[in-house]
Computed example of a mutant assay.
Amino acid sequence: MSNEKNGAKEEIRFNVRLPPELHQRVITRAKANGRSMNSEIIEMLTLVAGDIENKKLDELREKLVMLDARMRYTAAELDEIAQQKNNLLTEITLRERMMGHGRPD
C-alpha cells in the first residue's frame, strides 16, 4: 500500500513467509507477466481483494432482488385481499337489497 506524502511515496514494508511451492508459483507467475515478485504479489492481492468485494456486492444485490420480489408478492396479495373484500361487500349489498334490508344511501 502506498500513500503520497510530501510528494514522495510512502510504502509499508512487510515480510511474509511462504511455503517453497507457493514461492515458486509466484516467481513463475511474475516472470510470465513480466513483473517483479513484489509487483506480482501486489497484483494478486489486489485481484483477490476485488473478487471478495465483488462477491459481497453480488450477495447484497441478490438479497435486494429477493426483497423486491417479496414486496411485489406482498403487494399482489394485498391487491387480491382488497379485491376479495370488495367482492364480499358487493355481494352483501346485493343480498341486503334483495331482502329489502338495504341501507339508505
Score class of each variant (00 low, 15 high):
1 M>L: 08
3 N>V: 03
5 K>E: 04
6 N>K: 12
6 N>L: 12
12 I>S: 01
12 I>D: 01
12 I>V: 07
13 R>T: 02
14 F>T: 12
14 F>N: 13
15 N>E: 10
17 R>H: 08
17 R>S: 04
18 L>T: 00
19 P>L: 13
21 E>A: 10
21 E>Q: 02
22 L>Y: 06
23 H>E: 03
24 Q>M: 01
24 Q>P: 00
24 Q>T: 05
26 V>T: 04
29 R>D: 08
29 R>C: 09
30 A>H: 02
30 A>E: 04
31 K>M: 03
31 K>C: 00
33 N>W: 04
33 N>G: 06
33 N>H: 06
35 R>Q: 08
37 M>T: 14
37 M>K: 08
37 M>C: 04
37 M>P: 01
38 N>T: 14
38 N>L: 05
38 N>E: 03
38 N>W: 00
38 N>V: 11
39 S>N: 08
39 S>D: 12
40 E>H: 05
42 I>A: 12
43 E>A: 15
44 M>Y: 13
44 M>E: 09
46 T>L: 13
49 A>Q: 07
50 G>P: 00
53 E>R: 10
54 N>S: 07
57 L>R: 10
57 L>N: 12
61 R>S: 11
61 R>L: 14
61 R>D: 10
65 V>K: 07
65 V>T: 13
66 M>N: 07
66 M>Y: 10
67 L>G: 01
67 L>D: 06
68 D>P: 04
69 A>H: 08
69 A>C: 10
70 R>A: 14
75 A>G: 10
75 A>V: 11
77 E>Y: 09
77 E>I: 10
77 E>F: 10
83 Q>G: 11
86 N>Q: 15
88 L>Q: 03
90 T>N: 06
91 E>Y: 00
91 E>Q: 05
91 E>N: 06
92 I>F: 03
94 L>G: 02
95 R>I: 12
99 M>F: 02
100 G>H: 01
102 G>V: 15
102 G>Q: 14
103 R>S: 15
104 P>H: 15
